[in-house]
């Protein structure tokens, strides 16, 4: 087995039976992972197309609906994911150089960031559920009255939402009734919001599972992770999850003018 590597400190690798050379094997893994990521791009891409179409058809409804989202929590989550992407890249680098402790350290931070992301997401989701923003028969929408509602005053908002519809019938002519159904284009926004962020969150959970497994394997010095390739591939996946969020944040949280 020939190992002629550019970097003197790079850890040794093993060759599978179907390959001839270690370089070939490495490139195959990387290209294979990228091909998988291409399918993921198309997977999320279809949702982005749906978002773009509906946003262009119902610009105002989307602009109104998105005010219910908490921009600051979204910003926090973007920050968390960018950080985790950085630490994931560092973990791959450390693993490539055979620095076990540093690898474990950076992987741990990446995993913690992923958990942090999910915690923030949990806070956001529970607020949306409290306000009946989840699409379906219980969907309910109220136009935020003040700018403070936009700023994430969750406790105040939730109390209002739990009560009866704020707009009472007697403020309108007798034959003119407020209709929740008329506001359903916002349900469309929230459907896309939940599907897209939910699917992204699902990818984060898979990422935690993969990175956590790697962490354990490296911790217990399992032979399958002598090679840096598993960490490299998990890193590629994790960066992809980050990229999806890089687009989700401006397109879902920052619609139109604030």
């Amino acid at each position: 087995m020939s190992l002629e590597l550019q970097h003197p400190a790079v850890a040794p690798q093993r060759l599978s039976h179907q390959f001839e050379q270690i370089d070939q094997q490495n490139e195959i893994y990387i290209v294979g992972m990228w091909t998988f990521l291409v399918t993921e791009i198309m997977f999320f891409g279809a949702l982005f197309v749906a978002l773009t179409v509906y946003r262009s058809v119902y610009p105002d409804a989307f602009e109104q609906a998105h005010t219910a989202l908490n921009v600051w929590l979204g910003l926090t989550n973007t920050f968390i994911l960018l950080t985790s992407s950085f630490t994931a890249a560092m973990a791959v680098r450390s693993k490539m150089l055979g620095e076990r402790t540093r690898t474990l350290f950076f992987l741990a931070i990446t995993i913690m960031c992923a958990f942090g992301f999910l915690c923030v997401k949990y806070v956001e989701y529970s607020a949306e559920f409290r306000e009946h923003h989840f699409p379906g028969p219980n969907f309910h929408w109220e136009q935020p009255v003040t700018a403070s509602a936009v700023q994430g005053d969750l406790s105040a908002n939730s109390q209002v939402a739990l009560g009866s519809p704020k707009i009472s019938v007697n403020e309108f002519p007798a034959n003119y009734q407020p209709q929740q159904l008329a506001l359903h284009k916002r349900e469309l926004f929230f459907s896309l919001y939940f599907v897209m962020t939910g699917l992204h969150g699902f990818h984060v959970i898979i990422g935690i599972f993969v990175l956590g497994t790697l962490w354990l394997l490296i911790y217990f010095r399992h032979p399958t992770v002598d090679d840096y390739m598993p960490v490299e591939l998990a890193g590629l996946y994790w960066h992809f999850v980050d990229i999806v969020w890089i687009f989700l944040y401006p397109l879902v949280y920052l619609i139109g003018k604030q």
């Binding site: 399918t39 993921e40 791009i41 198309m42 997977f43 999320f44 891409g45 279809a46 949702l47 749906a50 179409v53 509906y54 058809v57 119902y58 409804a61 989840f134 699409p135 379906g136 028969p137 359903h184 284009k185 349900e187 469309l188 459907s191 896309l192 939940f194 599907v195 699917l199």
Partner: peptide, 28 residues
């Protein structure tokens, strides 16, 4: 992947009542 996510959306519409293609909430 495109058809996979599209069909998944149909499942989500049936199971959770999300509303992406349903004209009842402006879907196309």
């Amino acid at each position: 992947p495109v058809v996979a996510i599209t069909l998944l959306m149909v499942v989500l519409e049936r199971v959770f009542g999300v509303c992406v293609f349903n004209p009842a909430c402006g879907g196309d």
